[in-house]
Design a protein around this nucleic acid. Structure first.
Length: 677
RNA sequence: GGGCCCGUAGCUCAGCGGUUAGAGCAGGGGACUCAUAAUCCCUUGGUCGGAGGUUCGAAUCCUUCCGGGCCUACCA
């Protein structure tokens, strides 16, 4: 019997669980249920990730204390997970006494190993809010391309810089201009463990091959940079014991939360913590998304290594969720919260659909809503549950036969197939497992079809034969329920109730149930109603709670854009008139093949006045569609030499970037060359 | 510029060196009527992104190109 400790990444206490998160928690829950069903000793550990600036700011905005905020959010998370039958053995919090102590212990071992150094870090400081500003809390003008309203670390054109280099920086917390301040931060030297990380990441099957390659090419081919693990006060987190006024950075204490949550479980169950985190007896498996690969495959093993804890046996990394082939979108209603889903749909649907789609690769998975309806209905209701539905009624009268009847080897075949299905689950290749289960379901339906119990039921002399056919049908169904139990625990429970024997172990697929009575059949899964899916999307489309009531019929505009890009400082009329905006006609437009975002436009300001402008709108606008249209351009902007030529102005457009760029258009009658006042 | 993943039937995907390339769904035809308009049988449909190469044999291995996605760097 293996002893296995499994974790999912800790959800951040700053937001609610949505269907994207659920890919991971369902993937993990299925794996854990599988392990338990197989008879392995397995615990599923998780917790809320509660520290950091974002929590501090949010609590301040809501006018409540951080601890109140995180307590409420933890309750909401636990409720959402429970609604999807995600069953943790312990769900803790990084803001716990256990975590504080473990952080201190690990910290002490880093000190002892001489891995901690102090370095000066210069950051922007918001005097009014009384806090240093993380990059995403600063907006300003890019020092390279002069693009306004950019984050503190990089701009939409892909330039990288430090927040201190931003032109006209503004704090998004207070709207004031931050000042530059220097503070001492504590750093962990990871480079000293470079050799170990080379070895650990590249051998032993701890990582998927594409991840191991990625690390080799991106981080391990050069010296590893020191890791900044402290933040100066004020910060919501744990103060570093030997460095008053400094707090552990949220990413230092978050993974330690896995251990702290395990500790709570151990204390509740009289278990020895060291048997789980300092023992070769226990396999540790982390399930995470590809976005946090870096922390779990480099820093985390390095931290564990120097502190003498067990290293993960495997870090399982999954991709992101797309819906209908696109990123989840609030405006399209595909950013669906767990709680919203549960108001309209059965969690079993999503558990099944994700399982059918998941592989052991890092690929993104797509939730196609049409396919979601079709797949659940035809696979689960039409194929699997239908087996019970079409035989249980007859068997309720007769019970099951005492001796397993001849079924042409179907039961044995499906029993043997269990090993391959188990292998697929073990490898996190759930899609493969599901495919095999469905094949067994097809064969079982054929058996029922050929033996037509509905005809046997008409002839009293065929009663024994009828009972035998139903005994086979229900036992073949039960095998499917066993194999699907990790994915559909409720179906397994209902099957246990129907046949009077609970499903508790994988091996029960090898032994038929005989000689028992059969309960009254009740639908085990309803067909997915397309309207409920639409209702879920509609309920998710509602904008964030809008501000003041607007006139009936008026569009309800969210204030999100303003939050993302707060208004800048007042400028005078004279300053405004310094920018000479002109109407221009696009007379030529061509692709810049080597550039990823640029189109080369030739603008006419009337007569012979031409301007060449390189505009970052490739992929959003087609060159052919632009020719002839009127645009607004900043005409007196100093020419800028760029990699692909000189740009002699800018086209006015709004939007956050990426595919969302919206050029300003001009009402009819405007003429090229006219000034915009 | 570098890296990774993907490109197989209308859709979602399996197959990853060996008989005429598969499944589910969708489409077409039939059967059945126990079952949640479920099920069963038959069937249409693919120069396996393109081109080279290795091999007795390639969807499968190699090279290269094209297309899609992601990551990362650099330039301005």
């Amino acid at each position: 019997m293996r002893q296995i400790l499994v974790t999912s990444a800790l959800p951040y206490a700053n937001g609610h669980i949505h269907i994207g998160h659920l890919v991971e928690y369902l993937q993990t829950d299925i794996w854990v249920r599988f392990q338990k069903l197989r008879g392995n000793r397995c615990i599923y550990i998780c917790a809320d990730d509660t520290h950091g600036t974002a929590i501090m700011i949010r609590a301040r905005d809501e006018g409540i204390g951080e601890e109140e905020l995180i307590a409420e959010m933890q309750q909401a998370h636990i409720r959402d997970f429970a609604g999807f039958d995600i069953e943790f053995d312990n769900y803790g919090s990084t803001h716990s006494q256990e975590n504080r102590e473990l952080c201190a212990e690990i910290w002490a071992s880093k000190r002892e190993a001489g891995l901690i150094s102090v370095q000066e870090v210069t950051q922007l400081y918001d005097v009014e809010a009384g806090t240093f500003l993380a990059d995403r809390f600063v907006r300003g003008t890019c020092p390279f391309c002069k693009l306004a309203n950019q984050y503190g670390d990089s701009c939409d054109n892909g330039h990288h810089y430090g927040p201190v280099d931003l032109i006209d920086p503004v704090s998004t917390l207070s709207g004031t201009t931050p000042e530059i301040r220097t503070a001492k931060h504590l750093f962990v030297n990871i480079e000293r463990l470079h050799g170990f990380l080379d070895e650990w990441t590249q051998s032993g099957n701890h990582l998927q091959p594409e991840i191991a390659n990625y690390l080799k090419g991106h981080f391990l081919h050069e010296p590893l940079r020191d890791w900044d693990v402290s933040r100066p006060a004020p910060y919501f987190g744990f103060e570093i014991p030997d460095s008053p006024g400094n707090y552990w950075y949220v990413w230092f204490d978050a993974p330690i939360g896995y251990m702290a949550s395990t500790k709570q479980w151990c204390d509740r169950h009289g278990e020895d913590f060291d048997q789980w985190w300092r023992s070769d007896k226990t396999e540790i498996h982390h399930f995470i998304g590809k976005d946090i690969t870096y922390f779990h495959t480099l820093f985390w093993p390095a931290m564990l290594k120097t502190s003498g804890f067990s290293l993960p046996e495997k870090v399982h990394i999954h991709g992101f969720l797309t819906v209908n082939g696109e990123k989840m979108s609030k405006s399209k209603g595909t950013f669906v919260r767990a709680s919203t889903y549960l108001e309209h749909l059965d969690p079993a649907y999503l558990r099944y659909y994700y399982a059918a789609k998941l592989t052991n690769r890092v690929d993104d998975i797509d939730l196609n809503l049409d396919e979601f309806v079709a797949k659940v209905n035809s696979d689960m209701v039409g194929n699997v549950v239908n087996l019970a539905s079409r035989t249980a009624k007859f068997a309720a009268r007769t019970g099951l036969s005492d001796v397993y009847p001849d079924d042409g080897g179907l039961f044995e075949q499906a029993a043997k197939g269990g090993d391959a299905i188990a292998e697929a689950y073990e490898a996190c290749d759930y899609g493969r497992a599901i495919r095999q289960i469905l094949v067994a379901g097809d064969r079982a339906n054929q058996f029922v079809e050929h033996n037509a119990p509905w005809n046997l039921a008409k002839d009293p002399e065929q009663a024994d034969r009828l009972r035998d056919v139903c005994t086979v049908g229900l036992n073949l169904f039960r095998q499917l329920a066993v194999y699907l139990a990790p994915v559909l625990p409720r179906l397994a429970r209902q099957t246990g109730e129907l046949l009077g024997r609970p499903i508790a172990r994988w091996d029960e697929s090898k032994t038929p149930v005989l000689g028992t009575s059969v309960g009254k059949f009740r639908h085990m899964m309803k067909r997915v109603d397309r309207q409920c899916v639409d209702a879920t999307v509609a309920a998710s489309t509602k904008a964030e709670p809008a501000g003041p009531q607007s006139a009936p019929g008026a569009p309800e505009d969210s204030d999100e854009p303003l939050k993302v890009e707060p208004l800048t400082e007042t400028c005078t009329f004279d300053e405004f008139t310094k920018v000479d905006l002109r109407i221009a006609r696009v007379v030529a437009a061509e692709d810049v093949p080597e550039a990823s975002k640029l189109l080369k436009l030739t603008l006419s300001l009337g007569g012979e006045h031409r301007r060449t402008v390189l505009a970052g709108i490739k992929g959003v606008y087609q060159p052919a569609d632009l020719i002839g249209r009127l645009v607004v351009c900043a005409a007196n902007l100093a020419p800028r030499k760029m990699k692909f030529g000189t740009s002699e102005g800018m086209i006015l457009a709004s939007g956050p970037g990426g595919k969302e760029i919206f050029m300003l258009s001009v009402d009819k009658g405007a003429r090229p060359g006219q000034r915009v006042h």
